[in-house]
Design a protein around this nucleic acid. Sequence first.
DNA 1: CTTGATAATCTCAACGTTGAAATAAAAGCA
DNA 2: TGCTTTTATTTCAACGTTGAGATTATCAAG
Lengths: 172, 172
Amino acid sequence: MTGVAEMGDVVDAIVGQWAKERPDVVEDFWPVELLARVQRLARVVDKSVKTTAAAHGIEHGEFDVLTILQRSGPPYMLPAGALLKASMVTSGAITNRIDRMEAKGLVERVREGADRRTVKIRLTEHGHEVIRVALADHLAAYAELLAGVDRRLVEQTAEGLRQVLESLGDTA
Amino acid sequence: MTGVAEMGDVVDAIVGQWAKERPDVVEDFWPVELLARVQRLARVVDKSVKTTAAAHGIEHGEFDVLTILQRSGPPYMLPAGALLKASMVTSGAITNRIDRMEAKGLVERVREGADRRTVKIRLTEHGHEVIRVALADHLAAYAELLAGVDRRLVEQTAEGLRQVLESLGDTA
DNA sequence: CTTGATAATCTCAACGTTGAAATAAAAGCA
DNA sequence: TGCTTTTATTTCAACGTTGAGATTATCAAG
C-alpha cells in the first residue's frame, strides 16, 4: 500500500457515512458504489452538454434532437415518434422542443407521407450548420472531461457499463 | 469469436451511426462510449429512485434530502447550506424542498444557533420512519438493477468511475 | 361501409428547478 | 462605532418536463 491511489471520492465518503449509520445493512450498499457514481458523473456530463448547447444558442434538449437527426443520416428527417423513442423523454417534451426549434429555424415539420398522423421532422440548412459546429465543441468538451484518465481505463469502464445496459434491455 | 457476448447496446448503435455519418471525426468519439452510457444509465437510475420515492409519498429530491440527513448521523440535522452542497442543486431548489418537506412533517427548520443567518434542518420522527422504510426499498431496487451482472464487473466498473470522478475533483 | 380499437401527435395545467435579485446577519477593518 | 464586504437563506418569475387527456387518422373486423 503505497498510498498513491488512495484518495477517495465523494461516493466513498457517502458509503462511509452509511457504514457508520446503518451497519446493519452495510452489505446491501454495494450497488451504490456504481450507481451513485453514475448519477454524480451524469450531472457533470449534463452540465457540460448544457454549457456547450448554450454557447450555440440552444437548450440541452434541442441539442439532443439535433444530434439525433444528424446521426440518422440523409435525408436528416425522422418521424416525431422516432425522436420520442431516441430521446427518453415524454411526448409533450418532444412537441415543445420541435415547436421551439421550428421557431428558431433549426428544423421543419413535414407532413407529406401516406400516414397523415405522422409528422416528420427535418433538419434545415441552419440546423445542419448549428449542429456541425456545436458537435465539434461537444466532443472537445467530452474529451476534456476524460483528459485526466487513462484511455484504457475509459474503455474498460465503458465496457462495464455496456454490459449493465445490455442486461437492462437497453438494446437497439 | 463465438458471438456469445456480441449483442451491442443502444450506444453501440449510436456510435455506429456517427461513424457512418461523420467518418472524418470518428477518432474523437471515444469519450462518447463512456459518457453516453453514463447518461443513459443515469436516466434508468433516476426513474428507479423516483418510483421508490413515489411509493412512499415523496419526490425524488425529497428522498435525496432525507438520505443526506439520515446518513449524516445524530443529531440528524444539517445547515441548509450543507444540503445545498451535498445535493448538487441550486439554493432555490433546496428552499423549496424544505418548504414542502416541512409541510409534510418530514423535517423542521431550527433557528437556534449563534449565527442567525443559518437555518438548520432536522429530521423529524416521521421523517426518520419514512426514510428507514424507503431506504430498504431503494437498496432492493438498486440491487435489482444490477441483478443481471457479475458482481466483480460491477466493482471494477465502479472503480473506473471513481477514478474519473477523482480526476474531476469530485472529492470530499 | 360502419364500428371499435389502435396509433401518432398535440394540448395544457401542474410541477420542480434555475438563476438572479433581495433580504438579513456576521465579519473585517478603519 | 461606522462602513463595507462576505455569507446564508429566501423570493420569484421564467423555463422545460411530466402525464393525462383530447384530437385526428389508420387499421381490423364484421
